[in-house]
């Protein structure tokens, strides 16, 4: 058990490094390369206005000092520490709301969309992969693999636009974008966007699952199990699918950043007021505190997911604990 514990500690340390690096990168981009004051005051702001804004935001200090202040290690311009360590992420430059409040309000929405999408893509992907492996070399295999190939090559937004226009707008099966009112309505509105997001992701899982299952089913112990007279169904699920699922669990962890990228595009198309849409709007408006705050929350979420996936892999497969 202690090997799992050591693994967990090491893994958590690395997660913190990743979060810190992501924050540093985006902080430098937003405050060092870009100028949030131009976003706040507009492109026609006078130099003295910009100057005043820079002083007000503490941007007259070196970037490294600003970053330490943002992290809450050193005091801000007003002499008080209020940063990440204190659980504060500043206020929006556009509407003045606290970043934590804005992000917390939207986090459950993206979690709903992303969670449903993840569910769709894993279930659909594993099902397609198992079916293709079982019918290996038959027309069914060709059909399923061609479908996944198309899904890998189609731009997500194209699929989204057509899903919104066809099943939602023309056929009326789904709401035409938006978020809805009330819990059940939110889920109803989330169905189509998460299916689009999930269909795109499922292709990768299906191809991985098929490959792993084909490899696993040709292993000696599986042949032995079959020779002992175990039923084909039992051999497939207990000896095949269970083992082939290990890399799938690993992929879920690795896949989370991709899900975030997908959410940015999907939320924009379906007018889903989550973190992705917020990210796009805030980047365009150069609302630096929101953008950096989003990176904090998103990278922490991705790392939590990653650590969970890694621990699950280590639990399933002792070889992975090294």
């Amino acid at each position: 058990m202690s090997s799992v514990l050591r693994f967990a500690v090491r893994r958590a340390g690395w997660a913190m490094v990743v979060v810190l690096a992501s924050v540093t990168l985006v902080f430098t981009l937003m405050y060092g390369v870009g100028d949030p004051c131009v976003g706040k005051l507009g492109a026609n702001a006078r130099p003295e206005q910009l100057q005043a804004c820079h002083v007000q935001l503490g941007m007259d200090r070196p970037l490294s000092v600003q970053l330490l202040g943002y992290l809450g290690i050193t005091p801000g311009p007003d002499g008080v520490r209020h940063g990440l360590l204190q659980g504060e992420l500043g206020e929006s430059l556009v509407h003045g709301d606290p970043v934590t409040e804005v992000v917390w309000r939207r986090l459950p929405r993206t979690a709903l969309l992303g969670g449903l999408a993840l569910l769709f893509q894993v279930v659909l992907g594993v099902a397609i992969g198992v079916a293709a492996a079982v019918y290996r070399g038959k027309p069914m295999d060709t059909l399923l693999m061609s479908f996944t190939f198309l899904m890998i090559s189609i731009p997500g937004f194209l699929l989204g636009i057509f899903a919104l226009h066809g099943p939602a707008f023309l056929l009326g099966w789904f709401p035409v974008g938006g978020y809805g009112v009330g819990a059940m309505d939110h889920v109803r509105h989330a169905l189509l966007p998460s299916m689009v997001l999930g269909a795109l992701g499922a292709a990768t899982y299906a191809r991985l699952m098929r490959g792993e299952l084909v490899d696993t089913l040709s292993l000696d112990h599986v042949r032995t199990a079959r020779a002992k007279g175990l039923s084909p169904t039992r051999v497939l699920w207990v000896h095949g699918v269970r083992n082939a699922l290990i890399p799938v669990v690993t992929l879920i962890g690795l896949d989370l950043p991709l899900l975030v990228s997908g959410a940015i595009v999907t939320e924009e198309i379906f007018a889903w007021p989550g973190l992705g849409k917020l990210a796009l709007e805030s980047v365009v408006a150069m609302d630096a505190p929101i953008v950096v705050g989003l990176v904090v929350v998103i990278s922490v979420a991705v790392q939590l997911g990653n650590v969970t996936a890694d621990l699950a892999t280590a639990w399933l497969d002792p070889r992975a604990r090294q």
Partner: peptide
């Protein structure tokens, strides 16, 4: 590899 690609790209 663990950075959110599109988020960094749009920034």
């Amino acid at each position: 590899l663990s950075l959110p690609f599109l988020l960094i790209a749009i920034a």
